[in-house]
Design a protein around this nucleic acid. Sequence first.
DNA 1: TTGTATGCGTTATCAC
DNA 2: GTGATAACGCATACAA
Lengths: 376, 376
Amino acid sequence: MPSKKSHTIATLRSGNRLTLKDVAVKAGVSPITVSRVVNHYAGVRSEVREKVEAAINELGYIPNRSASILASSRSKLIGVLIPSLSNVVFNDVLRGIYSIAVPANYQILLADTHYSPMEEERSIRTLLGQSPDGLIITGGEQTDTAKTMLKASTFPVVQIMDHVKDPIDMNIGFSHFQAGVAVAKSLLEKSYCKIGFIGARMDPRTCNRLAGFKSVLSAVDRLDHKRIITNPQPSSVAMGAMLFRELMAATDGECDAVFCCNDDLALGALHECKKMHISVPDKFGVCGFNDIEMAAYAEPSLSSVKVNRYEMGRQAMELILERLQTSGNESDTVSNTVSKKAIRTNNTATPTQIIKSVTDTYIDTGFELINRKSTR
Amino acid sequence: MPSKKSHTIATLRSGNRLTLKDVAVKAGVSPITVSRVVNHYAGVRSEVREKVEAAINELGYIPNRSASILASSRSKLIGVLIPSLSNVVFNDVLRGIYSIAVPANYQILLADTHYSPMEEERSIRTLLGQSPDGLIITGGEQTDTAKTMLKASTFPVVQIMDHVKDPIDMNIGFSHFQAGVAVAKSLLEKSYCKIGFIGARMDPRTCNRLAGFKSVLSAVDRLDHKRIITNPQPSSVAMGAMLFRELMAATDGECDAVFCCNDDLALGALHECKKMHISVPDKFGVCGFNDIEMAAYAEPSLSSVKVNRYEMGRQAMELILERLQTSGNESDTVSNTVSKKAIRTNNTATPTQIIKSVTDTYIDTGFELINRKSTR
DNA sequence: TTGTATGCGTTATCAC
DNA sequence: GTGATAACGCATACAA
């Protein structure tokens, strides 16, 4: 059992975790000097620095982040909220985020919201407790509470993957609606005229693509709701095959092309075409979304829409770092720069009292239609 | 500029972050009582509890984890180290981990090591600074320093994905060597006799599969090194196609089957077979690894090896929670239970002085050969 | 360039 | 069942 009070500080401590003090004793300097070395402060004599560094290495000292965060209220933590760990689409986004975060010594706290705004709100709450220095979140369908919390927060927030209407802070993505428009137009141009849609999960971005798609077809009076088949279950190749069969059954041949809400579904549809001896692309056109690598290797190769997922992640993280850097220098004149996102009226703890959102950055990463053999 | 000293505590604070104290004032209790409510302590009168909970909700109070971690040295953070965010194999593992971690209120700190033990060591260092309550790490090829650090740590560590020789603590996975053995035997049984191997990235687990594969072939004197084609670059379908062409060129037709180190490569190989008019499975057999969904939808459908990735992640996290629970209760009699991993000789900060590793849990999640049309 | 005093927000420990 | 006090390990502000 531990002693109640210890006056010989460096020797008796509850846990046996090494602290700044231990290193300081070993190096014969004060703790704060060690802190400066650890944090790469300029103003330390190289002689002293080396001595300290030697002590650090000998002891294997690792700074305690919690203490550091508590004292400085900078955490070097970035919260990332994605709807699904299973959806490979987010792997690219994550890689982009990490490509910037890691060299800048930021760590990622990753949460999977399972496409649920409620779960998202819960995760945001948890993340906020970690004092993140920034947050990257998918889309714009947060709960009101979540939006309020984030707007009241003092760190940069980036919404990614979609062009959102009323952004919390910064936004980077592209218009899924316009992507849907582009696919519909393209299929029409290729002289398909009874164009259907199959979609699974039906998250907000998928819905936006569908909306864009419908808008075009209905404008030329080619929209038939029998040709819109959706399912709330997760996407998969098997699901694509199933939905395609449903589409065929529902339309009874009155369908000559399909826009699949992603490539997995499209691959399933292609597979089914083969089984049903439906000739692609002559008799039937198939277009996917995301342009995963397999799209190019399908038989026939799959037309799809390429989006810059890696870039979205990379630039989102860059936006955060930029803001962190500009706001870090000038600690006093905060309220009249654009470096802070929101200014609260007071600190009487009513988090809804926001005056304004100063930034409204939006970066469009665009999309590109890739025509391959599955369409004329 | 902030005032130097403030005696009216609840009103003037540097940041305007809400604290226990604010809630306490609002609820008319002491901070510690609020803490007890937040942490769901049993011994709080329900009347008081409700009052406090009301205050928490009204103010929108979110506990500061850093302060909590610093004071309690329990972080509810689990470090997870994976070799690659691009490799979809790890998505399933992560899902498994989250499926247990989230309900138990643990958060994940995810690091991508890019298949580099050095980068892995760096990440471990960073993670250790966060006082994780547990750590999940891929494979057994850590640097000596990393192993030493982890063996000296006081929290549970699980190595996953592979059966490692000298585990740091706990281990869950399967023998990639045996998987390689199984594939080779299976192809031999199917009367292929000039069996090749194509592999990319060549991480330790891939190498183990290759080793198992070779051991079988060499035992029956069917091993020909011309038929082993590898490349250090990342795997992809395109890479599979390329390696397959290399294999064909190198063997000049003296090859009638190939074990591909993963399904992406195998899909590329299948694609190339089609282009080269090589009849699969009659004239040529193809076997992949991982059994991704697309394997079943390839043409012809791809034989592969199924492994329980989700289970690996899930059980790894469960192992950690189990240990955390058993060691949390009995805080005194630690040294003679199996609940702690290692016992140090003293606390003079030489992290190499380990006496022994008390646990040696190993869970084998196995693998299963899936025969499909790409092999006879 | 280096050191001293103080506080960050929480929990552990022990009184009451 | 509830509260006072002292850590936890580090960084800020300022003094030297």
